[in-house]
Amino acid sequence: MFEAKMLQSSVLKKIIESLKDLFADANFDCSSSGITLQDMDSSHVALCYLKLRSDEEGFEDYRCDRNITLGVNLGLMSKILKCAGNDDVVTLRAEDEPNILTFIFDSKNSERVSKYDIKLMEIDSELLGIPDTDYSCVVKMPSHEFQRICSNLSQLGDSVTIDCHKEGVDFKVAGEQGSGAIKLKQTTSVDKEEDQVTVQLNEPVTQSFALKFLCAFTKATSLSDTVNLSLTQDTPVVVEYPIAQHGYLRFYLAPKIEE
């Protein structure tokens, strides 16, 4: 038996909304330690990795008697979650050898209980081993600032060059019709921690990435006030949105490099 009771259905809604356009079908791997999801886009350029820990406060109850994989169409899951109120408590339930995933939405005042079942799918997805490594540079910034930068620069070109150095981080685009550059300086003087831009730098990095994917990742902006960009030269960037009381959602994007 698998049963996970999440206090805020809005968190699950935001996760699925941020994934469903790039990642059509995905396996939720459930174990006693929590729920993980890894999936690649069809071109194998971008990857998402979701971790929701069972011992965090976001779950009111969590039970997973044996490891199970729940293969779900994310478009369908998005439709089901639209049936939940934002303040509803959502319970996910499945048997040990499941064909069906059940969603139960309880309203705050317990006056309305709704239940939806969806059929599970066999998804043959290729899992990649992602090593824990130290990155040359980790930029922490407000998530809405990163969203604005990606949106602004995508009007002029297809790829952004991210340049991390000891003064801060530069984002540059160069297209056929024009170019643009946004410089962010470290802002340690800002009062609120979530408004700060910080750059932890071991080595400077200059790397280009496709804006199409970065813009897609920023659909997760509402999950978190801050976003962390981890970069090392000639390796994929990690774009991480911490999820309070749950874990995190990470996106990996392969760089564009000189041919």
Binding site: V45, L128, I130, T235, P236, A254, E258, E259
Partner: peptide, 14 residues
């Protein structure tokens, strides 16, 4: 010219 790489060239299959 900058070309798009694939994640498979950085991470190995599990």
């Amino acid at each position: 010219v900058k070309g798009q790489t694939s994640l498979n060239s950085f991470f190995s299959k599990k």
